[in-house]
Design a protein around this nucleic acid. Structure first.
Length: 112
DNA sequence: ACCATGACTATAA
DNA sequence: CTTATAGCCATGG
C-alpha cells in the first residue's frame, strides 16, 4: 500500500451527498492531514472511479480544481447537473451547500 | 536525507 | 480588491 491516507480521502469524498460540496480543509481535518495533501490525493483520483472530485472545492467555494478535469467546464457542469449553482467559478450559496464530515458524518455523539 | 512542488488556508498589508 | 508571506503535509526527483 502506498497510502492508506488516500483511500480514506477517496472514501470520504464518495460520501459527500449529491448536491453538496466539501472543502479541502474539512476533508483534511477528518483524515488528520494537511489541506494540500487532499488536493494531492484528488490529483491522483483520476484513476479511481466513483470519486466525485467535482464536489470538492476550496474554502472560498471556488472551483480551484476545474482545470484538472477533462475540460475546465466539466466541474461546474457536473455540479449544476446535481443542483449546485455555479456563478463565476464559485458555488452559489456555498455556506448552505457546504458539507462537513466532522459535523455531518462524525456527529460526535452527544459529547460537547 | 534534502529540495521543489502542489486541486490549500490564514493572516497581513 | 490583490499580492505577499508563512504554515501546512505527502509525494517525487
Amino acid at each position: 500500500m502506498k497510502s492508506d491516507l488516500y483511500d480514506r480521502i477517496f472514501a470520504l469524498v464518495k460520501k459527500i451527498p449529491k448536491g453538496r460540496v466539501a472543502t479541502y480543509g474539512d476533508l483534511a481535518d477528518y483524515v488528520e492531514t494537511g489541506p494540500r495533501v487532499v488536493g494531492y490525493a484528488m490529483n491522483a483520483s483520476h484513476k479511481v472511479p466513483g470519486v466525485p472530485a467535482h464536489r470538492v472545492v476550496n474554502r472560498n467555494g471556488l472551483l480551484t480544481g476545474k482545470s484538472h478535469f477533462s475540460n475546465p467546464y466539466e466541474m461546474e457542469t457536473r455540479l449544476k447537473a446535481e443542483g449546485v449553482k455555479v456563478i463565476d467559478d464559485k458555488v452559489a450559496e456555498f455556506d448552505r451547500k457546504r458539507w462537513n464530515p466532522n459535523v455531518e458524518l462524525k456527529k460526535l455523539t452527544r459529547n460537547k
